[in-house]
Design a protein around this nucleic acid. Structure first.
Lengths: 185, 185, 185, 185
DNA sequence: AATGAATGAGTGTTCATTCAT
DNA sequence: CATGAATGAACACTCATTCAT
């Protein structure tokens, strides 16, 4: 008999909601891992009703995929911003510095490697992983050529994944030394 | 409140049982990921009753940690076997070949990067990750010196994590080129 | 990863469901004790699916607390109905009779002392215990004064807890004699 | 192949072990309640191997019953020690003081009321409860007569169960006032 | 369009009990 | 005698998903 205290529906802003949910998903994945990213956790983090998550993303897989894609896309955009600095000074020190600062957003980096591991099992995610790995090389290719670009992409990925695993700053010194060897050869 | 074991209990063999469970856990983690490695899945794979898994490993975390440790230890042992080949011919081609063949056991490689990501969240796993990363460098150091050893460890890790993410063979050609640059510099 | 509700969901009635679950919990606690009041037992008794119990009461503690509160509240209401009889004849015999008839609902009385013991361990329940003990005294105070009210509340509680422990009728004769001494003094 | 590191069996002292287990059981029941008193918890508390608990007490019920009996027996013995103080000064103040100090051992008091509630359900425990309730009255009867002894036993039990439920000191003042009324009448 | 009530499978964990050693 | 390995039932709780409102 008591009127259910139905919260008035939020102001319409489907795009904003979608984004809020995906952003929350990225945070939750970073903190708890893909396997533990649940509708509930994400809804709570995004401060939206539980129903919203399944309304915008019919299944958990859809939501996780959207989060990983968005994360990779943001990362790619940041890497694209490296162009300017690299054009000015395409040195080992510059690259090492860019890579270091990339790790400042630790959660995003963690999600990145979540994506890598998830892609190993879910073919559907490989395109995203591919694009993200490629973004790196596309930046470097015009400056240092194909072979070195590929080499540099590998060494930076290696330095990053190790930094993530050990929860440390990037080993900038070692990375710079490696990059010098690669650029000088 | 009163129920005896149903199946007649297997003959006692604590050591064997422990190992069987850990091995099963490694397989399950490789196939489904840490997040989906459940006691039930592991018990089934090891062909032991559910109760055994929690008898030997009180919490899921203990079991996962044991599996990751054992996996890393096995991997370290394999890397130690590289010594001989490297002594004979410490070339980029040799290293690239060893790294390629290392990826032949794909499940193990996947578990490796599961470990990396898990260590990012669980401080308790960082020691294991650290030791495994170090094993690589320890092999290379006496041959190529500290700086190059570190650089090579990074580039190989990068090449591997990318191969795992894209579910491809290791890009041996690119890796070899990179190693040549690092060794020649 | 994808499974709809099996039985067609019952018509919505949050208030009703909540109450049904709490009432079932009271019954189960009375019969089996707090320690053995499991979600499953309660769900079965309430004839609701297992998931409902945790949907409405996130933890077992919440559910037990709700049941104890409701039980104490019902009990307090019954005691408030004593007022009329006491006003007409505020005698030892009246009080003893009321206490006796209070024990007619044996399960409720058992739940009461479950509450007492549980409150000894869970600070969160002490407020409920306190209110219920107070309800007794509030009835008696205007009639016999503070000191006697407190004394009577104690002796009735003692008579009741002993009757509950021995699974006997209240020892009305002894209680009446005690009350006479307390009222006459 | 590794010889199991079998701890040398404890020195033989069956009676001592039995007692250690029962004492541990009392503590565990006091802290966690009968329903949560498990073999494991008790074995750990008593610092004996798990097997000991079932060796000496075939079922959980046996162990719990032994603990409750021993607790009641200890309690009865303490009450018997009241005799001396009561003989010297059979006053309300003395009794109230004795009751207060009885509650100094809070865990035992909690176990007492666990016993009461358990006896309400398990007929097998009623004998123990009965003896314990009787112990009280037996002390008082020779001093104040049957009727008053019974009344006093009730009021003290009531005061105690309330103190236990509220996790407070015994309300000695109120109890003394009540006892005065009962003794003076 | 949006929400939250509803459902039951599945998870980690604890446990009483049995019995080989 | 004593012990701890072994087993599977049961429990609290989380969850993805559906769908009436």
């Amino acid at each position: 008999m008591t009127r259910p205290p139905r919260r008035p529906p939020r102001p319409r802003d489907p795009e904003g909601r979608r984004e809020a949910i995906v952003d929350a998903a990225i945070e939750v994945i970073a903190e708890h891992g893909i396997g533990s990213a649940s509708h509930r956790l994400i809804a709570e983090r995004a401060d939206v009703p539980l129903g919203s998550t399944t309304y915008y993303f019919p299944t958990r897989g859809d939501l996780v995929a959207a989060a990983l894609e968005r994360s990779a896309e943001q990362a790619a955009r940041e890497v694209e911003r490296w162009a300017e600095a690299l054009a000015r000074d395409p040195s080992a020190a510059t690259l090492s510095g860019l890579a270091s600062s990339y790790l400042d957003d630790r959660p995003r980096a963690v999600v990145e490697y979540e994506l890598y591991v998830a892609a190993a099992r879910a073919a559907g995610l490989r395109g995203v992983a591919q694009r993200w790995i490629g973004a790196f090389e596309r930046q470097l290719e015009p400056i240092v050529g194909t072979v070195r670009a590929r080499a540099i992409a590998m060494v930076i990925d290696g330095a990053m994944v190790q930094a993530v695993a050990l929860d440390r700053e990037l080993d900038a010194e070692a990375l710079e030394a490696a990059l010098q060897l690669l650029l000088a050869g």
